[in-house]
Write a protein that binds this DNA or RNA. Sequence first.
DNA 1: CCTCTTTGTCGAAACGGTTCGACTAAGTCG
DNA 2: CGACTTAGTCGAACCGTTTCGACAAAGAGG
Lengths: 349, 349
Amino acid sequence: MSGSPTIRDVAKRAGVAVSTASLALNGKPQVSQQTRLRVLQAAEDLDYSPHAAAKNLADGRTRTIGLVNPTTVEHLFTSSGFFMRLIRGMHRAATEEGYSVSLHIADSEEEAKAAIRAAVRTRSADGFVITNPTVSSSYLRDFKRHRAPVVFIGRPVEDAVYVDNDNVEVSRVGVRHLIECGHRRIAFLNGPEQFTFCHDRLLGYRTALEEAGLPYDQGLVWRSEQTAEAAYEVVRAGLAEHRFSALFAVSGIQAVGAVRAFRDSGLAVPDDVSVVCVDDTELTRYSIPPLTAVALHENWLGYWAVKLLLHAIKMQTATYPVLLPGELVIRGSTAPSRERVTEVSGRRG
Amino acid sequence: MSGSPTIRDVAKRAGVAVSTASLALNGKPQVSQQTRLRVLQAAEDLDYSPHAAAKNLADGRTRTIGLVNPTTVEHLFTSSGFFMRLIRGMHRAATEEGYSVSLHIADSEEEAKAAIRAAVRTRSADGFVITNPTVSSSYLRDFKRHRAPVVFIGRPVEDAVYVDNDNVEVSRVGVRHLIECGHRRIAFLNGPEQFTFCHDRLLGYRTALEEAGLPYDQGLVWRSEQTAEAAYEVVRAGLAEHRFSALFAVSGIQAVGAVRAFRDSGLAVPDDVSVVCVDDTELTRYSIPPLTAVALHENWLGYWAVKLLLHAIKMQTATYPVLLPGELVIRGSTAPSRERVTEVSGRRG
DNA sequence: CCTCTTTGTCGAAACGGTTCGACTAAGTCG
DNA sequence: CGACTTAGTCGAACCGTTTCGACAAAGAGG
């Protein structure tokens, strides 16, 4: 009488058994065209929609995926739009297949594990996407035990299905641009080593140098936390001890700090030193000068993570990692080297 | 045998009926201390946790709240950390009371309504938080029909429970700071009028002027989309026609455009013109000069939205709007007016 | 000592779906 | 025409919990 209509109401109105109504509503083949139509019409008339929890209970599928976000890279998630773009991509992939996304945010590793554990045990999601897999090992156990598929965003230290930017390529492309501008002594501003993306980007830097026949100088590889202030200090220190005409930074916020360090040292960007960084955000786009950057497509990261996850959920089988390319966006922080201008052939696309 | 333990397993192991086990596990008073302990111990032994969907089906509570985000203010949500901060606050409030958050993102008004409708009808959330209530009326109907409590983030055009920044106060505080710096002709760079926050901030601007006995000059109130480029154009145009020594912008990104316009017109910030904006983000903090801003606390917006929502869910009763104060953060874009320095008494907190 | 409450426990009936095995009425085949 | 498949439908069981009404035992009041 009062509440929403149930499948029983629909069945009654269509003059069929409940089971038949269920079959018809779910498009199962064994119902005759005629009954199917009657049932569908009845459902329409009653403005019926199935109760999510009841479905879940009956067939064991929650049609929900959990996004687990241990917020270890504070800056990345709270400041830039990274997270939002990720989420939008995830959400799109999920809705495409009738799934919804639920959140599990945690401020510490412990909290994240507790959240995951709870979610897995109450069977409130069919699978999980986990960002920031700095310490992935401990997670995996719980998932395996409960047969919950997992996809990581960002390459985890150990074997697991994941989606990530092709970080080697990302920095390779950026550094190559600098080389093509004629720079020969290129500093590399890295982030904390425990992140695989930092490791990979360093590799891309070395690769680019190697390909160009340039020497790899340990002294030009610096490391700082992912903040403008930390980057500033490191670059000031580097300036005092080394000569170079360009810098590649693994994050936009670090690049901002670097640019400030140059400015405070009386060096103009790009006239005296060129800068390329990863991530083309408002922060880098509207800094002065606008920074040439390798843009990442986080929405696609999220999208593919969910696609992979859903595949795993349905097929009960593991899948392969997916690597996404970055895209060089040439803005105002790079210029031909003044020291020695060689062929400059950067594709301005 | 195979699956996770159910409450039946727990009951059996504790030697009680299923119903008693349920009572004990949920801390209901009518179980004896002794049985309660036996049940709890059994649950512990079996590593039991209740099946979320089953609970939901039985008692009708999903213990989930839906976050609906019609992404109409593109910039706000995809670029700044706004959304992430909001989410973290929401998540915190939700987990505090054993709730989880599920996402419903939409790229258009229509899509958002469809998403909401589906969520409401499948009874997959106990209530909803809706951001960007530009066109709220159409939403409300669906919710009311299904008795789903809703809290808006941002003041909607029509009556409803909501949480918002105290936008009048936000700009009042910022403008007052400029006035205290001695500025008498202060331009106001507004956003699209259909947003209530723009309306309210303009009001705050007028209030501040009035309180200081300064005239309100229509010609100094400009309007642009929420992008740096749009702001740039509007400010260039304004510069050509009006004299002023300070500007208040309703968003950080617009302020960035304005600063650029000043620079390109040969005006130094803050020496020639002071700038204050709303929202103290990386973008404004690391621009040159760092912008004096009124910081908003989006995490608290999210937090209180959920608190209010949960209150409404539990008490079955409507609640009152909550307004959050902003906080003036003095950075490098404001300086005493050169024209006529009056008492400068800004609280540098 | 008998009745009336209180306390603790229990079985059974929801909640709203899906799925499985059984059944009937048509075809199909030889 | 009888035996065998097949298509379509149905009733019942099940998913894992909560909740309600019944009930026995114990304690209180007269």
